[in-house]
């Protein structure tokens, strides 16, 4: 059964053009769905719509976001906030800006457990300590007392991952969680997310540009182009036989990670033009 089910979601910039066109996408319990597409396609918007953090300038025009069988868009804002806070989490893109610079790491993990979920302070602290261990931070006791600026980007992303898993959410949205990091660190962080996802059985909506990552981490894949889902496949099927010409071109344009330069092809202009026309016609 799907934990998250986005149904025919359309959104636009207020007084402007459409951003999302009739998007449907499911993430089953414990499943990892990749969300790929070129820059500006609307990948982040989908994640933000689910978590209720769309920019003020963006409005949803139609559709449903079913979370655990409840349509989030039909809930009053306060209830929606609490439902999302209790069952979902975000692993943000840029660990350097996603931690509050003036607060210690420890409270940034524990506060919401206490404030929102009603845990005791002690239980939350024990949980934070255990989680820092899980994300392979040595000396967790010391790190909990440090401030963000004292830690490297990789360390901060580990902390944000720990924080995302802290309340055993059913769904995590990871929006390009490694692009802001050093190439050497990217792999470790990816492995970490994948390992925690498996161990905790968390459903994951994984926004990325990298089909190599998709092939390793995801079971399902949605390809987005100009706000429209042009392909929704099992990852194995996608790599064997992409259904949509744009997906095929995207696949051809992706370097094989065994030999980064082999088979590197730009997406042909003709394909792009064809997809544009298709999307424009709805």
């Amino acid at each position: 059964m799907s934990f998250l089910s986005v149904r025919n979601l359309s959104a636009r910039v207020k007084g402007g053009g459409p951003l999302l066109r009739d998007v449907s996408l499911d993430v089953a319990v414990g499943e990892v769905r990749g969300l790929v597409g070129e820059s500006g396609a609307g990948k982040s918007m989908i994640g933000k719509a689910v978590l209720g953090i769309l920019p003020k300038a963006v409005e949803i025009t139609s559709g449903q976001i079913m979370l655990d069988g409840v349509d989030l868009l039909a809930l009053p804002p306060a209830q929606r906030r609490i439902k999302v806070g209790a069952t979902c989490a975000l692993i943000p893109q840029d660990p350097l800006t996603a931690l509050n610079p003036s607060r210690r790491i420890g409270v940034q993990i524990t506060d919401r457990l206490v404030d929102i979920l009603g845990w005791t302070r002690q239980r939350a602290e024990e949980r934070a300590l255990a989680l820092l261990g899980e994300v392979q931070i040595t000396e967790p006791t010391r790190v909990l007392r440090q401030y963000p600026h004292e830690l490297s980007g990789g360390m901060r992303q580990r902390i944000l991952i720990a924080s995302a898993f802290a309340a055993e959410p059913k769904l995590i949205v990871a929006d390009e969680p490694t692009t802001a990091l050093d190439v050497t660190v990217q792999k470790q962080i990816l492995k970490l997310i994948a390992a925690l996802q498996v161990r905790h059985g968390t459903a994951l909506l994984f926004v990325t540009h990298d089909l190599g990552v998709v092939s390793k981490v995801c079971q399902k894949l949605s390809v987005l182009y100009a706000g429209k889902v042009v392909e929704d496949s099992a990852v194995a099927d996608f790599f064997r036989a992409p259904k949509h010409p744009y997906s095929a071109a995207l696949l051809a344009a992706t370097p094989k990670y065994t030999d980064p330069l082999a088979g590197l092809q730009p997406v042909p202009e003709a394909v792009i033009a064809a997809v544009r026309a298709e999307v424009a016609h709805g």
């Binding site: 978590l51 209720g52 953090i53 306060a78 906030r81 609490i82 999302v84 806070g85 209790a86 979902c88 989490a89 975000l90 943000p92 840029d94 800006t97 996603a98 931690l99 509050n100 610079p101 003036s102 607060r103 506060d111 919401r112 404030d115 929102i116 944000l160």
Partner: peptide, 26 residues
């Protein structure tokens, strides 16, 4: 507009609480 404020929103904090405990100290 900063990321850590947005993150706090996803955690279930109300707008007032976000302003008071996340934005104000900075």
């Amino acid at each position: 507009h900063l990321d850590y404020v947005t993150l706090a929103r996803t955690q279930g904090y109300s707008e007032a609480k976000v302003i008071w405990s996340q934005a104000l100290p900075n």
